[in-house]
Design a protein around this nucleic acid. Structure first.
Length: 279
DNA sequence: CCTTGAACCTGCGGGC
DNA sequence: TGCCCGCAGGTTCAAG
């Protein structure tokens, strides 16, 4: 059994995509069970008709979306929101609280979407319509793809007075970054999260983009991050949480300069940073 | 166009 | 033990 419980930012979604590819590639979806009609958005009207009997050609990721490419040219897109988890079970055990969608595969495997807070959602649309869909058309820089660069980031931040931390969370500016990796990347780049986004120099943007890519890649290598009391025998849990340099470290000493890590609120989210060397 | 704050929903940990 | 409060990985929408 593969069981995936992650904090769904880019590295965690990427980790889920890779694990799901193992389970789903070249399998046929033989059945769909929905236990309610909606999460944050309604499930697509014709979901069962559009995915049942379809072979899974490949899986990919865009921003924080899991994309499941089907033989009929459609894509099922899954966003995990804050609390979405996906697990696979070859022998379907008792249904758990907040299991909302169960896909049955031709080899007997079940793919189960569980989401306590229901901030996640599922879409299903023709692949050719994907980039024009409202959820995808305005997405910003994909940080690990060609085209991501300091100059692209600098351009995307032009004229923005909002603090750089909040700009990094704006998926229309740069896609895939969430609260943890925004804090971590700014720390590593030595940039104060309160700095107006548009005031970053091209050099600072270069440094920041490099650190964003760096921290995301390291987190993917580590299998993402998991929090709280998660324990798992399958070896599928990530361990990047042990590498956090600022996130959730308020009151502890900065690993770089020894100053005390601060915790502030920005736009309703918590930011952790070192006031001494993030300038 | 940009920015801000509230809203969506459930679970968990801490304080009393 | 139990209740109440604050807080949590994300996004959208209304209002200024």
């Amino acid at each position: 059994m593969i069981k995936l419980r992650v904090m769904p930012e880019l590295p965690e979604v990427e980790t889920v995509v890779r694990a799901l590819a193992q389970a789903m590639h070249d399998k046929t979806i033989s059945g769909v069970t929905l236990t309610r009609r909606d999460l944050r958005k309604p499930f697509p009207d014709n979901l069962e008709k559009n995915i049942s009997g379809q072979r899974v050609m490949s899986l990919s990721r865009r921003a924080k979306y899991i994309l499941i490419h089907l033989e009929n040219g459609r894509v099922m897109a899954i966003h995990l929101g804050m609390s979405g988890r996906i697990r696979t079970e070859y022998v379907l055990s008792a249904r758990q609280k907040h299991d909302h969608m169960i896909l049955q595969l031709s080899d007997g495997c079940h793919v189960i979407l569980n989401d306590a807070r229901r901030f996640g959602y599922v879409l299903c649309l023709p692949e050719r319509d994907l980039h024009a869909h409202e959820c995808f058309q305005n997405l910003g820089i994909e940080p690990l793809e060609r085209g991501a660069s300091g100059s692209a980031l600098h351009k995307a931040l032009q004229g923005r007075k909002t603090p750089i931390k909040q700009a990094l969370l704006d998926q229309h500016v740069i896609a895939g970054i969430g609260n943890i990796y925004a804090c971590e990347a700014l720390f590593e780049a030595g940039i104060n999260p309160l700095k107006p986004a548009g005031s970053l120099t091209p050099e600072a943007c270069q440094r920041l983009m490099k650190k964003i890519q760096d921290v995301l890649n390291r987190a993917i290598q580590a299998g993402g991050s998991t929090l709280r009391d998660y324990r798992q025998v399958s070896g599928e849990s990530g361990y990047f949480q042990h590498d956090f340099k600022v996130y959730d470290r308020a009151g502890h000493k900065c690993r770089m300069c020894g100053h005390v890590i601060a915790r502030i609120a920005q736009g309703g989210r918590t930011t952790f940073y070192c006031p001494s060397h993030q300038t």
